[in-house]
């Protein structure tokens, strides 16, 4: 973990892409490079979902050990490395949450909504800006309530049942709200892809 000059965002992305390719080719030293470049972002994710330092660190370990075991699962034609790793880390954290060992969702639902103002750590690798703008645009087109619930699911890892409880509505109602939102979201995102 030697200190090194801070690369630009593009250089960092390119270095990560290259490290992922080396890892897939069986070069173990690539894993340390990937860890160095992504740990801050990925730990931010597992910590956010799990709300517990120890659990989040365990989840983070799982992410990288898993990555090393199955580096071939990453398909560079489908996603940028950081987008894929971010989703991977969040999925692992959610898995852990669902095994029931963790209390999870450290942050109340009400605080979940707009997080855009929170500034990430300076050396955090971000997902592609264009892609980010589009999902924010499509989410922003949903009504505020639906958007809030979808965000709460994403940021806190809440289930339908938890969201329904928090909003004090029947489970079926919450499912309908969110599914309708997801349907619109899909249409909006697909339209952006077609454009």
């Amino acid at each position: 973990m030697a200190a090194r000059p801070r690369p630009t965002a593009d250089e960092a992305r390119e270095a990560l892409r290259e490290a992922m390719a080396r890892l897939a080719a069986g070069d173990q030293s690539a894993l340390e490079d990937i860890y160095r470049a992504t740990r801050v972002k990925l730990f931010g994710i597992t910590l956010r979902i799990l709300g517990d330092q120890k659990e989040a660190e365990d989840a983070l370990q799982d992410v990288y050990v898993n990555l090393w075991q199955r580096a071939d699962r990453y398909d560079p034609t489908r996603a940028s490395p950081i987008a894929w790793l971010a989703a991977f880390a969040r999925n692992r954290a959610i898995d852990r949450l669902r095994t029931g060992k963790v209390r999870g969702g450290a942050v109340p639902v009400e605080e979940a909504a707009p997080l855009a103002d929170e500034s990430p750590l300076a050396d955090m690798l971000l997902v592609d800006a264009e892609q980010a703008a589009q999902i924010h645009k499509c989410l922003g087109a949903l009504d505020a309530r639906t958007q809030g619930h979808i965000r709460a699911a994403f940021f806190e890892g809440h289930t339908y049942a938890e969201l329904a409880d928090a909003a004090d509505v029947p489970l079926g109602t919450m499912k309908s709200w969110i599914r309708r939102g997801l349907q619109r979201l899909r249409a909006c995102l697909e339209a952006s892809e077609a454009a």
């Binding site: 340390e32 994710i45 894929w84």
Partner: peptide, 29 residues
């Protein structure tokens, strides 16, 4: 969907894990 949702994680503040995390990864590998 994973890929489209991924940019939302940029709003999750980054955090520095403990140094033992990497040691654990290296040991498990």
């Amino acid at each position: 969907w994973d890929n489209w949702f991924a940019p939302l994680t940029d709003a999750m503040p980054g955090a520095e894990p403990g140094a033992q995390v990497w040691d654990g990864i290296a040991a498990r590998i």
